[in-house]
Design a binder for these strands. Structure first.
Lengths: 146, 146
DNA sequence: TATCATTACTATCGATTTGATAGTAATTAA
DNA sequence: TTAATTACTATCAAATCGATAGTAATGATA
């Protein structure tokens, strides 16, 4: 039940964009440097985030990426859902037709309950909160490395 | 963040044992038949459950398995923890030393919060509850196939 | 004691997933 | 036209996963 590296990197990527919200677009190169993650890998991860409208991109020289919404309007659930597939613990919760046991299976119901809790928690945390937690944790020092 | 088949099977295995709690030990063969899961595979899954003292085993002819505790005293968290490794979403929550970013990383804290919610929820659900949910869902009919 | 049914353990395998890299195309400011 | 950037597609090695196979140990019973 571990999160993929893709999702973990994606969250850090979004946090980095949140830091620059309202300013000019950021080069992925710089985020990659600041977060010490391969730029190529990040460039794959950002695609679905752009596709669902969380990120805007500008191509060409002096292009870059920026958040499409205010960080207070973006939740962790949106990010996890798109990068992880969804945030349920078993496939049969999102796609009940994939398992014939669903109608007679109580553990399915358990996983649905727990998945609900996870969704609830993820929905309650915004990018904005993540950025603020970061500031409280390390001050403004680390913020400038982007 | 999907649960492994191992964990899902393990929960069903424990539920089957819970149905027979207080009676004579059950042959894995019969549980395997009732749940339509490979007996060999189940025999691997049950080992850690026995090691942490959730299950008792008797070897030899007329052997079998039985729950070591009352189903109301066994939580889903115990089962998931031993079969899944632990119930955190990232390694750095359980083993902070594995990641140098922990002291400066707010997303680590987010994952810890969510992991806490998951633990909490898993701890609140007992095997007993699972069995009762099953009975409510399908009545006693399905209960007899073990 | 011999037999048979059961649990216990170890090794292995094929398929899938994962994390990552590489190369090329498209776009655009200067 | 050039250089810098995003967009897309393909590929790869390693790890993980689900499952199977075979053998050893145990113990009831005939």
């Amino acid at each position: 039940m571990k999160l993929s590296t893709r999702t973990r990197y994606g969250v850090r990527l979004m946090a980095a964009l949140a830091l620059n919200y309202g300013q000019s677009p950021v080069f992925l190169k710089n985020i990659a440097k600041g977060e010490n993650i391969s730029e190529k890998y990040l460039s794959l991860i950002i695609i679905p985030l752009r596709r669902i409208g969380l990120v805007n991109s500008i191509r060409g020289a002096h292009g870059g990426y920026s958040l499409a919404k205010d960080p207070s309007q973006i939740t962790m659930k949106e990010i996890v859902d798109v990068l992880e597939g969804d945030c349920s613990l078993v496939d049969c919760v999102k796609n009940p037709s994939t398992c014939p046991r669903v109608p007679i299976c109580a553990s399915h119901d358990i996983w649905a309950i727990i998945g609900g809790k996870i969704s609830e928690t993820l929905s309650s945390i915004t990018l904005d909160m993540l950025v603020k937690m970061n500031q409280e944790k390390v001050g403004n020092a680390m913020m400038l490395n982007i």
